[in-house]
Nucleic acid binder design. Structure first.
Lengths: 398, 398
DNA sequence: GAGAGTTATAGAGGAGACCATCATTAGTAC
DNA sequence: GTACTAATGATGGTCTCCTCTATAACTCTC
């Protein structure tokens, strides 16, 4: 109860709140007429008009041609200018870099990939990131100067300052000030987050868990991780270390993937990154050895999942990550195990966003950040759409 | 994004918001002068005055004599009328019923206890509840009609409708519409919640976890349970089944207390409810057998706790429940185990509220409910302080 | 193709809520 | 008893919202 967010205030504050309501109503939805807006916001028509005029003058809103073929005088239509700003999401994996460019609605404008190697030195990975970002901007016909925010998802434990503490799959990613390094690459605010958390966000914003308030996202693949959405918000925890149930020995999650990688069905020369996929495919075809491996894996998977479900009682559990392509194989054994211990069974689904999960989540994360900056009820004042200043004033690197 | 809470609106809406800010500023704090209020709310003096007059007329606020001994003209002082309404918290345990009466500030006016027996039939327990409540009202010089809300904490799994699904320690508490039954006893809204959750709330509102945003509360005693505070709010989960990590076999929490109850040090004739306390006391005095039992118990305790800590990364873990009187014995072994697996160690403390934890939490829960009803930004309008109508219109029982 | 019907726009007048300012009042300090 | 201090109470101005009415633009029907 230290300092409250002053909800009320001035007359101008009322106008600000109303402008915010109008913007929020306009976002996501397609172009809307004045009357529709007035009804949805609860404001009177004249007031709505005045607010819209103000927003148009600022550049947040633009008029679009009226819809033809309607009775009566055609209504002017307005829509949120999603192209007022741009943001980028980047997924830094062990074997790939992925970048995507989006507008303020979160709609993708361009997307690029670069291969990577887990053991590549830091400089190489950073160079690949820069290339992917530049290519992506090129595809979208934009430059660095157009970027408002860059959100980055990466493997590993990321603390609240955007520092990567350690990463099991990228050895070089260890006690690394990634946010600082990327802050020198991009002329805007850079946010760094754990990739599982961003994937969880994407699934709740536009994936299979859309509109769920409590979501447990399981990243299952070469490494295991979880992302939690609680009460509709990404849960980071006090030290931004939430979701690291992998560390609990009793779950067996650290060795878990080995059950699939080292299954007897896997042929000799197969590259290690394809081993688990092979086992899962074999299990789908009924191979008994593969099925046994899957059962062993599911045993472990179920322990950590049950812990999360029993603690949080989520509406839905989403299976994501590389192995989620085989969700059809994994879900039934997981479900039967959970049913044995869970008080209330949550919904259980495979990810629908697949490989794009993390970039999309990064974009959603960037949008959330910008929303907070511009459109939160406790934001300073409604500014015209210009790129927000980067928080840490950074002099030219010598 | 279905329907938004319209944050802005009318001029009267602005007044409502400002009145709410003033009330929130006044709550908790002692009597304040107009200038102090104006400064803290950000409103001008004249406006603050007008709001205060309105609130006084409604009965939410009252004037108190000015503070003497001050320079200049003495300022009029106002305070929130905590005695405008009353609420009751009830703790239904296996061996006891506890009731407490409080004002709108959550300050206790009276408190009573009644013994109970785990195997008592439902009617007996309900009768004991009624007695405890009546006695409590008598002590406070109030009647049923003065009660605005009654919040009840009970052992067992409680669903969102206030129905007790099952309780390990009260066999008769099984598929029981407790909220409905108590709704016939009290002429006001009755809320039923799991007792561990309420204890967690009390510790966050007025206990050792005050002001922490993410809290894991461990109820350790004859039965085990957890209560989670996430982002400052009580986490219930989609089906109100959150916190039931006891159900996970890998934690060993169900059998956990037996380690202490059946320790070899416990003398023959000791009543079973005192056994664990004896073992813990013996361990404090260095008895090796008792210490070994404590270690075994801590092994189990640590598994479930680590699961919660790794998943949620709370700021603090609070040990409550019957065994928490021996927190000094339990904390060190628990801490050393957690340090082995946790990425970031949370603070670790014993409960400071002790036996009163659940009643206090119930009162805090009731206050939260009333705040939502009266003082939330999206509440319908600022009403004068009268008891809110009971939601389910209930005819006289025939 | 003109008139009726429909729906949106534009503008004026009024009410409510906030703020700034100033003279007044009720105490303390010397 | 006078000077100083700090809060009170009242006045006028500004801003934002609402209601209401006249006007404009387009479709449908005859």
């Amino acid at each position: 109860m230290s300092t409250m967010p002053p909800m009320g205030g001035d007359l101008s504050r009322l106008r600000q709140l109303n402008a915010l309501t109008v913007i929020k109503t306009l976002r996501g939805a397609e172009a809307a007429t004045l009357s529709a807006l007035a009804e949805r916001t609860g404001l009177s028509r004249p007031s709505t008009k005045e607010v819209i005029d103000e927003l148009s003058a600022m550049g947040w809103v633009e008029e679009v041609p009226p819809a033809p073929g309607t009775m009566g005088r055609p209504a002017r239509r307005y829509r949120f200018r999603a192209d007022g700003g741009h943001l980028m999401g980047i997924d830094i994996g062990a074997y790939h870099i992925r970048a995507a460019l989006a507008d303020l609605d979160g709609d993708l404008l361009a997307e690029t990939r670069r291969p990577a190697h887990p053991d590549a030195p830091i400089e190489d990975r950073l160079a690949a990131i820069e290339q992917a970002a530049a290519a992506c901007l090129g595809l979208g016909g934009l430059t660095m100067a157009d970027l408002w925010t860059v959100a980055v998802g990466t493997t590993g434990v990321v603390n609240s300052d955007g520092r990567v503490i350690l990463s099991a799959s990228i050895p070089a990613w260890r006690d690394l000030d990634l946010e600082g390094l990327l802050g020198e690459m991009f002329p805007c605010r850079v946010l760094v987050e754990n990739d599982s958390r961003l994937a969880a966000l994407a699934e709740t914003r536009r994936g299979v868990a859309r509109d769920a308030r409590d979501v447990v996202f399981l990243h299952i693949g070469r490494r295991m991780g979880t992302g939690l959405i609680i009460d509709g918000r990404l849960h980071r925890g006090f030290g931004a270390a939430a979701g690291e149930i992998v560390m609990l020995p009793e779950t067996g999650w650290r060795e878990g993937p080995e059950d699939l990688n080292n299954a007897a069905v896997v042929p000799e020369g197969l590259p290690p990154e394809d081993a688990a996929g092979f086992t899962l495919a074999a299990a789908r075809n009924g191979d008994p050895t593969a099925l046994e491996a899957v059962e062993r894996f599911a045993d472990k998977l179920a322990v950590g999942t049950a812990a999360a479900v029993l603690l949080l009682d989520p509406e839905i559990v989403v299976l994501g990550g590389g192995f989620s392509r085989s969700a059809d194989v994994l879900l039934p054994p997981l479900r039967s195990r959970l049913e044995r211990v869970c008080l209330r069974m949550p919904k259980l689904s495979g990810s629908t966003l697949g490989d794009e999960c993390v970039v999309l989540g990064a974009i959603d994360y960037a949008i959330e950040h910008l929303d907070q900056l511009f459109f939160a009820p406790d934001a300073p004042a409604l500014r015209p759409p210009v790129r927000p200043a980067t928080t840490p004033a950074r002099p030219d690197p010598a």
